[in-house]
Simulated scan of single mutants.
Amino acid sequence: MREPRLYTTSADYVYQELRHRIITKQLKPGQRLPEVNIAVQMGVSRTPVREALRRLASEGLVLVIPNSGARLASPNRREIEDAYVVREQLESLAIRLAVARLSDRHLRRLEETVIAEERAFEEKNLELYLEVNESFHRIIAEASGNRVLADYVENILARTNVYIVFYDPFYDIETNPSIAEHRAIVNALRLRDEEKAVALMREHLELSMQDLRRPEEEAVQKKETE
């Protein structure tokens, strides 16, 4: 069951509600988001709707097109692959630097995050899963000791989380290999095995990208199984 939220403003209410609908796949990539319709549905004026859409656009979830309105983002395969190429380079460097600097506290936080990640997956709570998944990668970036690198990693995490929202088969799978991959990364870090940690991170990101499914790819797979 979804926990009730406290909203500070009408814009916050609209933002949270739209974001929830996007993450739970009630809205589809490329779908139009007419301000008037949303305002009527949620019982607010168009001003908070506009503010909420701008906030979602800053996160990459929505595209606001001048003289055309807003619509849900719909990244193509090339955009996804390009983003993951950048992410792989950034996170490979981050984990390489982190191996020698990682503290016991960092390791405990990583272990706790994996446990929380597993719980979120069992509950099929994608909002929580994205939060703890991002936290796992952010902890490693912070442990690198390079603030500029950590900022770049945080930026690319936000971008690739958008792809997870739209194209990850989160709600359709019974097991999540990403959790086991995270555990393996933690074990390599605990052993201070730099090369293994880097190799595992590269493999993890490659597999994560491969798991993303575009709607047209799903349609082809469905047709092949019929």
Score class of each variant (00 low, 15 high):
L18M: 06
G30H: 02
I179R: 07
P75T: 05
A143D: 02
E203R: 15
M42F: 05
A70Y: 00
P75E: 01
S68G: 10
P75W: 00
R190K: 09
D168S: 07
L63T: 14
E112V: 06
F170R: 02
A120D: 05
A120R: 04
L18S: 07
T47A: 13
L97S: 05
R32S: 13
E226A: 13
K28W: 06
H137C: 05
L56V: 03
V36E: 13
T9E: 09
M42G: 08
R202H: 12
P215D: 02
K28T: 12
E117F: 02
S144G: 13
E226D: 12
V132R: 12
E206V: 08
E118M: 08
R214Y: 09
I185L: 09
I22L: 15
N161T: 00
G69K: 02
K223C: 12
E174D: 12
E203H: 14
Q221F: 04
A120H: 04
P48S: 08
R147E: 15
L205S: 07
H182P: 04
N146D: 15
E3F: 01
A219T: 04
A150C: 04
R192Q: 10
S58G: 08
A158N: 13
F121K: 11
D172F: 08
Q16D: 14
E117L: 11
Q210S: 09
P169L: 04
L6N: 12
V198Q: 07
V44A: 03
P4L: 08
L61R: 03
I173Y: 01
N155L: 14
N155T: 07
A158D: 13
Y152D: 14
V162D: 03
A39G: 03
I173E: 04
R55L: 07
G69E: 08
A120L: 02
I95K: 06
R147H: 10
R5G: 14
E154A: 15
E206M: 13
P169R: 02
M1F: 10
S58H: 05
P169A: 06
P66Q: 09
D82C: 09
A73H: 01
R2Q: 15
N125Q: 05
E122H: 11
I38C: 02
